[in-house]
């Protein structure tokens, strides 16, 4: 099965939030009371009941203002830190390259919450489980588009084979010119949501410029994990060798001192 990519062309996003709502509808995520806190953005961030959120961001440069809208959701990394750290195998790669979640397996350890370079997975205290976008695995595995893509009126969101989406993305970035770039295919071995960014990545709020699996996760999972087994094995082996070569320490009282004092 070929890898799939959700392409998010921000130059075409109008911030209508159809994607945000469609996600809630398909996944039956309940709404929660919010307050307007001085922005159109609501809920304020990704939440257990909000798997994708449009980030509204105003920028002002040289007197010209711009309003940026970014569909923020799971990036579905190939080298996915969440999958790497997940102790139970709840997070896994599907045959499409996306990262899905088997909620039944999740033990609520929150390790993925902190490993993710994009800070996507959210912990739900009510269910004691972590939850995130699974790129509508139930839909894509039935030859449908993810709900957010289906709802997008402008074509900012598209879904298709990796090769085709990358071609479209690069062509679009070239067409846009200036600071436009493709974001996603060059790190963490390639993500399965990619952006066409009309502006430099650094401009966008909460979008890491050079995301990667955190060093702490590499040190932990790639080095310390094998090392601890190796060390334990080494010690057990060493002890065995010690026993057979050097022998146990003699504490039986055969020594001069012992006999002498014992005789007292």
């Amino acid at each position: 099965m070929s890898e799939k990519i959700k392409l998010c062309d921000l130059s075409k996003c109008t911030g209508c939030r159809g994607c945000q709502l469609a996600c809630k509808q398909w996944n039956q995520l309940p709404a929660k009371q919010t307050v307007n806190y001085g922005t159109y953005q609501n809920p304020p961030d990704l939440q257990p009941n909000t798997w994708n959120v449009i980030r509204f961001q105003e920028i002002s440069e040289n007197g010209a203002v711009d309003w940026l809208f970014r569909h923020d959701a799971c990036m579905h990394c190939t080298d996915a830190a969440c999958v790497k750290v997940c102790p139970s195998g709840a997070l896994y790669h599907t045959k499409y390259g996306t990262v899905a979640l088997d909620s039944a397996k999740c033990i609520g350890c929150k390790e993925c919450v902190f490993a993710c370079p994009f800070e996507v997975p959210r912990y739900d205290p009510e269910t004691d489980k972590v939850i995130k976008c699974d790129m509508c695995y139930s839909r894509i595995d039935n030859a449908m588009q993810p709900a957010c893509v289906k709802a997008c009126p402008t074509g900012a969101l598209r879904f298709g084979d990796k090769k085709e989406m990358l071609q479209i993305a690069y062509a679009r970035a070239k067409e846009l010119g200036g600071d436009a770039s493709v974001y996603g295919d060059t790190f963490v071995d390639g993500t399965h949501m990619i952006y066409v960014l009309p502006r430099k990545a650094a401009v966008y709020d909460r979008l890491p410029e050079k995301p990667r699996v955190p060093f702490s996760v590499i040190a932990w999972k790639d080095w310390l994990k094998p090392l601890s087994l190796l060390a334990a094995g080494g010690v057990v082996g060493g002890a065995f060798l010690h026993y057979i070569i050097h022998g146990p320490k003699d504490t039986s009282g055969g020594g001069d001192q012992a006999s002498r004092e014992g005789g007292e």
Binding site: F114, V217, A232
Partner: peptide
């Protein structure tokens, strides 16, 4: 993030000493 790494490091040390 570093808490997980340190926890693993602690495990590595204690696990080894445990066998000794």
């Amino acid at each position: 993030r570093w808490m997980y790494t340190l926890h693993a490091l602690g495990f590595f040390v204690i696990f080894s000493f445990f066998f000794v």
